[in-house]
């Protein structure tokens, strides 16, 4: 790949931890892995957790620390969803890579270790990033491969949802859950980057950033960089909200107010307005849910009815249904719930 121009490098890449011990907030994982680094013995691994918690970073860091820059290319195979990973690739590419043994005896291994300062264990690593987007067939084809070549190859699976990894694969791996980052950890990382980049961030903006990124450090850094590009070195919390695309509180409130008014046409107008303003509907509904739940003057039964509708609608949106109609449906059901109208009309 062409050398990167340092300026155009995303901060996410720039500040990616290079060593396992630098990965934030995942103590158990790091403890196990540091042990591994000393003994150079490694099981198959499965990393799972929400996005932006450091899964890929950890996997890459450990591979780098095990092999060093010299051997990395020949020992590590990294595959992610941008590469084709159908059953054919598993049968040919992965199998071929896994099958070739690394010819090192114990003695030579120690020699290499002295020579380069890296453990260089006598096996190779295959990193399968975003493994939950692999087809079930491809995962099934991996089962035997993993066992047959376990002497010479270790697998790292990285995924968001462990439920999408088939049970036989999961049971062959040591599982590590990556937790969402807590607010303090997030703030300290962000402050570190701000210092490095010469940015000025007040405490309110910092807490806003933690709130809107919801434990996803990558998202927080991306927002920070976008805001820095647009608004220069001093960033306020409104700037952050405008780049993040979070829907302003007022919009959600006014939708609820329109529903409380009780007239279908008023709600309809508000809904058309929201759609014309281009706000995305599914995050809007999530925020609407928050507002409904936290409101005090709506009885629980009505809240439950609205929430049920929100759940159904979310499913419809995932299926690709029209945003205007779905939002209108939610608004109308909200009105009916608030005014205790029956679910279906009885004449």
């Amino acid at each position: 790949m062409a050398p990167l121009v340092p300026m155009s490098q995303p901060w996410v890449e720039k500040y990616r931890p290079r060593q396992v011990k630098d990965v934030a907030h995942q103590e158990e994982v790091i403890r196990v892995l540091t042990n591994t680094l000393q003994t150079a013995d490694l099981p198959h691994m499965l990393f799972y957790g929400p996005p932006g918690t450091g899964k890929t970073t950890t996997a890459l860091a450990i591979a780098h620390q095990l092999y060093g820059p010299e051997l990395y290319k020949s020992r590590v195979l990294e595959l992610n969803a941008s590469d084709d990973r159908g059953i054919n690739v598993v049968r040919t590419k992965i199998k071929n890579f896994a099958a070739v043994a690394v010819g090192t005896t114990r003695k030579a291994f120690l020699a290499v270790m002295d020579f380069s300062g890296y453990p260089c264990p006598p096996y190779k690593i295959i990193i399968l990033d975003e493994a939950d987007s692999m087809t079930e067939d491809a995962q099934n084809a991996l089962r035997r491969t993993m066992e047959t070549y376990s002497k010479v190859t270790r697998f790292f699976f990285i995924c968001n949802y462990i439920s999408r990894i088939i049970e036989p694969l999961a049971s062959r791996c040591a599982k590590f859950r990556f937790k969402p980052l807590s607010e303090e950890v997030m703030s300290s990382r962000i402050m570190h980057i701000c210092n490095e980049e010469g940015l000025n961030l007040d405490s309110q903006a910092l807490s806003t950033l933690s709130a809107i990124s919801q434990g996803d450090l990558r998202r927080a850094i991306t927002y920070l960089q976008s805001a820095a590009r647009l608004f220069g070195s001093s960033i306020s919390s409104t700037d952050l909200i405008s780049v993040s695309g979070v829907i302003p509180e007022d919009v959600v409130k006014s939708l609820l107010a329109a529903c409380r008014f009780g007239e279908f046409d008023v709600a309809n107008k508000e809904v058309s307005n929201i759609i014309a303003e281009g706000y995305p509907v599914s995050p809007l509904m999530a925020q609407f849910l928050d507002v409904i739940v936290s409101t005090d003057d709506i009885p629980d039964e009505q809240k439950a009815r609205i929430c049920k509708k929100l759940g159904e609608t979310d499913k419809c949106l995932v299926d690709g249904a029209d945003e205007y109609l779905q939002l209108l449906d939610v608004a109308s059901e909200t009105i009916r719930a608030l005014f205790n109208m029956p679910q279906t009309l009885v004449f």
Binding site: D265, D319, L325, L328, D329, S332
Partner: peptide
């Protein structure tokens, strides 16, 4: 209106 808009959303889905 409530009823009809519900069914429109339903059938569009």
């Amino acid at each position: 209106k409530h009823e009809i808009c519900h069914w429109a959303a339903h059938y569009e889905h």
